[in-house]
Structure formats: C-alpha cells, structure tokens
C-alpha cells in the first residue's frame, strides 16, 4: 500500500507531534504509520485525512500486490 502521510503532513506544515495531537494519538503511532509498519483503522485514517484536509485515498493507495 502506498502511504503518502509524510508528504501531506509536511505539505501542511505539521510536525508529527502536532498531527498526533490533532487526531488524538501518540507521536509513535504517526511514526509507525509513516514508516508503513502499522496500517491505521478506518476511523484513524478518516481523522488523518480530515486533519490534513485531503481524502483518505490521497493518503493511502492500493498497489497491485495488495490484491494478491
């Protein structure tokens, strides 16, 4: 899965800490999502998209290998 969280966060001028506070999680959660170590739930994905004023599909995109 392609994950553009870091790109949109930086575009918005958010630090990891600020984004974490905005969506109510720890900074470590944001780090793990950005590294691709953790895939967030739909609820958190929607919160992230809302905080960054983009759609969930902008941040997370499926790849061909995800269908296998």
């Amino acid at each position: 899965m392609v994950n553009k969280l870091k790109h949109y966060r930086e575009q918005h001028g958010f630090t990891q800490e600020q984004l974490a506070t905005a969506v109510g999680v720890s900074r470590q959660s944001i780090i793990s999502i950005e590294k691709g170590q953790y895939v967030p739930t739909t609820l958190l994905a929607l919160k992230l998209a809302s905080a960054l004023k983009v759609t969930v599909e902008n941040i997370f995109q499926l790849e061909k290998m995800d269908w296998k």
Binding site: V25, S26, S29, I33, P40
Partner: peptide, 11 residues
C-alpha cells in the same frame, strides 16, 4: 495504561 492509549498501543 500507557501514557497515550490509542489503537497503535492496542495493536
């Protein structure tokens, strides 16, 4: 509890 309890901590 951890300092911040969220879904990642549950995971």
């Amino acid at each position: 509890r951890e300092k911040v309890e969220d879904e990642f901590v549950d995971f």
